[in-house]
Design a protein around this nucleic acid. Structure first.
Lengths: 179, 179
DNA sequence: AATTAGATATATCTAATTGATATATCTATA
DNA sequence: TATAGATATATCAATTAGATATATCTAATT
């Protein structure tokens, strides 16, 4: 089943813009792309090691003389080619994993106030995420024509469109349950 | 970290309606709840074994005399209590894992036709899922007042609302990219 | 100046999930 | 009768998730 490791592509994508340490890669993943993809030290560091062996990235630094031990990773031509192949490959795994929906689905036996409460918690999360994404969107719109942020902008508008849909559903669902 | 195994709750939820075999549990997960949760034999069978040891479910059958070896699982009082505790617990992990968005996010270096193609593939998936959910919805609306299908109906409307949002985003994103 | 809290940084470990594979039986159809 | 496809249990390797261990750097507090 080997070579289904998506974290490799994420790392290569991030390194295609700038050299980064493992720690910085984690921060990037938690940031802009965190709402549609996750990463952890537990898969980032092993992936960096493997990809170095495969010649997809190059490791540098680590000289303790200049302060803290720190390794920067740089994408190679081979890594860049692998990244482009992955982007151009039409196959993509898209999946939702929503525990809230499970609780709604199985919530029929319990009192409906329990489901309403679960929806309210979900609604609050969606509202917060939406307001963060709206800030991103406003900032991006200021620089859209100058820089290279169009694709980032598209993922942000995706998030906004879906969180708005969630909030509409929350309203309707709460009304249905309170009847 | 133990006891974070969500598949347990899914199985208990399914068993709260009827006794099932592991194979049937897999089919149920692939069906109605498949668009917001996944399961595999690789976690269903081990979970059933563990839960039997914990007294959350009871195993019966397996007598090869009456045809194929087949084990039915039945939820216990303890299992039913565990299910209710989980439903009433406000904490829920909700996460998107959308490889298409990764490809869009990192697609800035490639030709924009590549991103358009990725969006088209995504759009086709969304369109198909939406039409399936609309069939579910129509069938459910016929029996909504009679049976116990309200909570199922709510998860279906969630899916419809979000897939419609995806399609709106696809339209907008393609327009932006073709400019 | 010394202490401390929090961020930076690498790395590993366990548990859980995913997806494939192995094995075998039943059922409908060609 | 053969065989393809569905039913059924079970396990394995690869990947992911989340926590933890260790240590250094930095800025604020005492």
């Amino acid at each position: 089943m080997a070579k289904d490791r998506k974290i490799d592509a994420v790392i290569l994508g991030l390194l295609s813009h700038e050299d980064l340490t493992g720690y910085e890669i984690k921060k990037r993943i938690d940031g802009a792309i965190g709402f549609f993809w996750k990463g952890s030290f537990g898969n980032i560091y092993p992936a960096l090691n493997d990809m170095e062996k495969q010649g997809l990235v190059e490791k540098s630094g680590g000289d303790k003389s200049s302060g803290r031990e720190k390794f920067f990773y740089h994408i190679t031509k081979k890594g860049s080619d692998a990244l482009n192949d992955w982007i151009a490959d039409e196959h993509a795994v898209n999946e939702l994993k929503y525990e809230t929906l499970l609780k709604i689905y199985f919530g029929g036996a319990a009192d409906s106030s329990v489901s309403v409460r679960n929806i309210e918690v979900f609604e609050e999360q969606a509202r917060q995420n939406l307001s963060i994404l709206n800030v991103f969107k406003e900032n991006l719109e200021k620089v859209l024509d100058t820089g290279d942020h169009l694709h980032y902008y598209l993922t942000v508008t995706f998030g906004i469109e879906t969180y708005e849909a969630y909030l509409r559903w929350c309203d309707k669902a709460k009304k249905i349950l309170s009847k």
